[in-house]
């Protein structure tokens, strides 16, 4: 139990951050992180840190698919009802636009690019990244480099740029 607690303390914040960046929903991120730890208890993998993130990435992908459908419904509803605008300060506006821009940029990436970038930022080794996206470890470096360039190009071109088409998109 003590080792699990240490692992939890070490990995949980990064896991939630990864999932939040991936899904944009803090509650859902925390729920999936918990689910990943529960599965860890059942499976007892050899390398739990990487395993946790790989499982979380898979769970996030499934959740994203479900939420995409729900989000489309919500957008339609909002358009019908008319969204209520809350006045915001300039700083808030800038910040919200920045966050929305990064989210939009990530959203336009392929699933593989997005997962690679976000998992790398949580400190996963190339080996774990390879396991997460199902490629050889030797392919990770060029894939990461291209994913970074795509994201930066998206951010530069803005929210109305066309989505980047990739082989895995």
């Amino acid at each position: 139990m003590a080792s699990l607690k240490r692992l939890f303390d070490t990995c949980y914040p990064g896991l939630v951050r990864f999932l939040y960046r991936r899904l944009g929903d803090r509650d859902l991120a925390e729920d999936i992180a918990q689910e990943a730890f529960i599965r860890l208890l059942r499976e007892s993998p050899e390398r739990p840190e990487g395993w946790l993130f790989v499982v979380a990435a898979n769970l996030a992908r499934d959740a994203h698919r479900r939420d995409s459908r729900r989000a489309r419904h919500l957008e339609l509803l909002k358009a019908e009802l008319g969204a209520v605008e809350v006045p915001a300060t300039d700083l808030q506006v800038v910040r919200e636009e920045t966050v929305a821009g990064v989210r939009d940029g990530l959203a336009r990436l392929s699933e593989r690019d997005r997962t690679l970038l976000l998992l790398y930022e949580e400190g996963l080794a190339y080996r774990d990244l390879a396991a997460a996206v199902g490629v050889k470890e030797s392919s990770i470096a060029p894939l990461l480099a291209r994913a970074r360039q795509r994201l930066l190009r998206q951010l530069k071109e803005g929210p109305h740029a066309p989505p980047i088409a990739t082989a895995s998109a």
Binding site: M1, D9, Y12, V16, A29, Q34, V99, V102, L152
Partner: peptide, 23 residues
Amino acid sequence: AVRHQLRHLEVATDTSAAWTRLA
């Protein structure tokens, strides 16, 4: 640059509360 951009997407977590929930 990517790392800098992703830092805009931070989230605060309460690890001890989450641990309590899990345990």
